[in-house]
Amino acid sequence: MSVRTDDTRQIAALARLSFSDDELRVLTGEMKAILDYMAHLSRVTLDGVEPAFSLLRCDNVFREDCVGEMLTPDDALSNAPDRHGDLFRVPAFLPKD
């Protein structure tokens, strides 16, 4: 699979990263080399092989429905880059679906 600069630009938008055109060109080259290497996985015969998603995880681990310790608003906001009273403040944005 060949990665083009346009693909990289689109992936960058999805990942909320911004790159200069030069950076994008270099990055595209690096990604291409790495993905080419990854592509050798396509040589493995995988008939009937299930993915290993939940291999190591335990089924049915639950928490009982009891209220525990919570942070105070001041603790919650202690690391905030910007706040307004008890609220996190962020720059202008548009509502999403």
């Binding site: 993905l35 996985l41 493995v44 995988l46 092989v49 993915p51 290993a52």
Partner: peptide
């Protein structure tokens, strides 16, 4: 499918 899922299936073989 080609990358993430395939990698998870190859992982099964390694296991």
């Amino acid at each position: 499918d080609d990358y993430y899922l395939r990698a998870q299936r190859v992982r099964s073989l390694i296991v």
